[in-house]
Nucleic acid binder design. Structure first.
Lengths: 187, 187
DNA sequence: AATACGAGACGCAACGTCTCGTCTCGCTTG
DNA sequence: CAAGCGAGACGAGACGTTGCGTCTCGTATT
């Protein structure tokens, strides 16, 4: 049995320091030593509880409640999706939030174990929520809802990753429109 | 006037060494020093001609002719897209090729200037080719072809990035089918 | 009494710059 | 036309710097 006498004070300081550093100085300057210094914490305290800076960022995001995206159900699927996709596009367009996403994505690409945690703890809840909302809509027979979810979020990631065009509200709406055309029962 | 007395021999050795290292030992071990050692070249020779390993990988890919994706035009848009998307999915599913893509993506996320070069020299040609093929198809009025292209490639990137499901031929076909439903004139 | 804590020293690896001596090319000059 | 010269790229690797992850301290907490 592990006697977890973990200091909540240090934990919070570390998570906050990580997010602050990302916002202030950007990913290249986000080092374990910088986090420890800014948090007023020994490096060992970080290594004792996390596998690396990727894990720190992940916990900071989960802790920050980014995953609590309870999407609306007004009965109008098109309108509800517009709300969600507009919010997602805005999130990716925001330089501050985008910096955090960029950091966690880099870590994710270099660490498969972390990638699975990010997927399960951060992304899946959101994707599942959208999928469930879709399942209550007028979707054509034989259409894979997972694929529809990807049809919505994939292009956003794609455009963000490749810096291949503006991430605007109009873009979000067009994306919803086209996706609806793909899977709605009444074309 | 710059008297470019650049050694083609060294250039080739460096590009080859970079790709070999990526295939053999993976991204974490892809260092400038390792590339120089494997290529039998001084580090300065790399720094003289490239901004970093990201630029080396990019040139290796461009040089390797990855961009020469001349897609077919049989008259059947659905069949042609199936061919292209199947190939793309297979590319992302292949561990060897995927390792290179992963490496260039990481570099891209950390270096905006590199990102633009990758987009313009590597990705845009392929996306443009697909867009042109689409423009010869029976697409509904008022549909943005750029968006349709993202509808095709976005989900693939999304699934690959998040490791969020298998990248199979069936997946490719379903993706094409759904995209066609979204934008074809005769629903 | 046990153990997490802040602080920081330690050896290691890769960074990017630099300084060698060598080699190769292009231009000059006899 | 050929011998010689000078600029600059080349392989090699030393150099100081930075961040890594591990390790000891003495202190603080429970």
């Amino acid at each position: 049995m592990t006697t977890t006498r973990r200091s909540e004070r240090s934990r919070r300081a570390i998570l906050d320091a990580a997010l602050e550093l990302l916002a202030d100085t950007g990913y290249p300057d986000l080092t374990i030593e910088a986090i420890a210094a800014r948090a007023g914490v020994g490096k060992q305290t970080i290594y004792r509880w996390w596998r690396g800076k990727g894990a720190v960022i992940l916990e900071a995001l989960v802790d920050g409640g980014v995953t609590d995206m309870t999407l609306p159900d007004t009965g109008d699927l098109r309108a509800d999706l517009r709300t969600v996709i507009r919010a997602t596009v805005a999130e990716f367009a925001d330089p501050k939030l985008s910096a955090t996403t960029r950091a966690i994505t880099i870590e994710t690409l270099a660490d498969e174990a972390l990638a699975e945690q990010v997927r399960d703890q951060l992304l899946r809840p959101q994707l599942t929520a959208v999928k469930e909302r879709l399942s209550r809509g007028e979707i054509r027979e034989g259409v894979d809802l997972d694929l529809v979810v990807e049809l919505l979020f994939g292009p956003i990631y794609h455009r963000w990753l490749l810096r291949n065009g503006p991430l605007t509200e109009e873009y979000a709406d067009q994306l919803v429109e086209l996706t609806m055309a793909a899977c709605l029962r009444n074309g």
